[in-house]
Design a protein around this nucleic acid. Sequence first.
RNA 1: CGGGGCGUGGCUCAGCCUGGUAGAGCACCUGGUUCGGGACUAGGGGGUCGGAGGUUCGAAUCCUCUCGCCCCGACCA
Length: 494
Amino acid sequence: MAEEKLTTRAQDFSAWYNELVERAQLAEHSPVRGCMVIRPNGYGIWELIQQNLDKMFKDTGHENAYFPLLIPQSFMSKEAEHVEGFAPELAVVTHGGGKELEEPLVIRPTSETMIYTMFAKWVQGYRDLPILMNQWANVVRWEMRTRLFLRTSEFLWQEGHTAHETEAEAEEETLKMLGVYRKFAEEFMAIPVITGLKTDSERFAGALRTYCIEAMMQDNKALQAGTSHNLGQNFSKAFDLKFQGRDGSVQYAWNTSWGVSTRLVGGIIMTHSDDDGLVLPPRLAPTVAVIVPIFKTDEERASVLEAADAIYNEMRSKGFRVKIDKRDNMSPGAKYYEWELKGVPLRIEIGPKDVANKTVVIVPRITLDSREAAKPGRKQKLFVSMDTLSNSIEELSSELQAQLLKNAIARREANTIRGVKTYEEMKEIFSKGEGAFVYAGWNGDPAIEAKVKEETKATIRCIPDAEFRSAVAPATCLVTGEKAKHEVIWSKAY
RNA sequence: CGGGGCGUGGCUCAGCCUGGUAGAGCACCUGGUUCGGGACUAGGGGGUCGGAGGUUCGAAUCCUCUCGCCCCGACCA
């Protein structure tokens, strides 16, 4: 017995998450309060997120740039709501080179103020628009309570910033990028998301409207996985971002900003992983398959390693992210547990019998409905030919990817409650720990939203887009009984 | 910032009440036997007990102060 088992999700979801992140060597707490060190296993996931999202941004016409970490404090206060929203969580640099600075510099919590200052210099006429830009960066928000990946004082993210000639164009861009996020969540992270509009209380400080993608974690709490803001002319007016229009008049530009962060890694963990450890969607797994050679005698060792190496080299040359585990101080069983903990989607076992048969055994990290069921209490074992191994890896990867999304959708639907009749009923639901997504009518009054938050800890995650709404829209506000203005989703959230 | 808990080899923790300058399991190193679901065995290396001050012949242990971390709450991606 080497390692003890993880705390299970049922025992303590929060402890399960923390143990998993550390034991799978994704990240750990740094010597600096609230900041995390992202280890290679975790950073590899982020790198794949970056690569794939970056391609999607470029395919939609955006370019990357980089703006500075430090922002003059005065910039922050130019937009009234913005400063109010971010002031409490700013880290401020007051000294440089041993001397007190004339004006303190804040470490960016987000870069609107710096970026629109620069955009203002670059834009004179309508022909200079649109500007479609993105940056990959770190930001700092001095959070009171932190959790690895989900909320840390410093985090990595991308922030897209655009400037447009018209309000309609800005709105189109805002929704387009929300769509990109949704596509990425579903196709790469295998996380089903609900798109929708934030209420005023959850809106980005300084935005006209904030749209979001919301996902349900395994404890039925919501995770805001990405946001896309229509900033209107709030920042262009604050930063004097003007252009001369087609009619000759001077106008303020229309801006959008949108971002996702390393929080997505936390979302992937909390959506798919199980009591054995991390489960990763193949498309974002730094290692898609690990080869474990098995042998007893020296002769077996030689032939098995030769075959395993051949397979390894062939798969690498074909571009598969595979690893081979040749450690000789560990039994195969111990290796299985370790790679399962680390979330590798496919395990390829190769022993003397396989070498003789020109086959390997592939064990998928989760059960695939598309394959023959395993014997009770056992894992699925798939015997595949060495000759067609790359096809098998491709097929199994996409089956596993699809299975994860399917499982996540099923779980979300099973924990979604529509048609709640009374507020008491909803209170009852949220008092029971498990949580849910509760669809209900709302009269649009922020005071009601605040009251419910106070009494249940649940908040309005979003006003869902049409495709997510109930077939029959709730006619009345669940709390007041007045005519409902919107159907909204209530949930506890991270 | 309020409430709770904790700082002792890399990790998890015991020792503290009833002071006598450290101990276990895991991990690590070396050898042998093992290896298709968490191996066994023999030997070995590594800590001055978060920090500072105090009491004492003597402090991981008692006292004071301090720093940090974790959990719960208010705030948030």
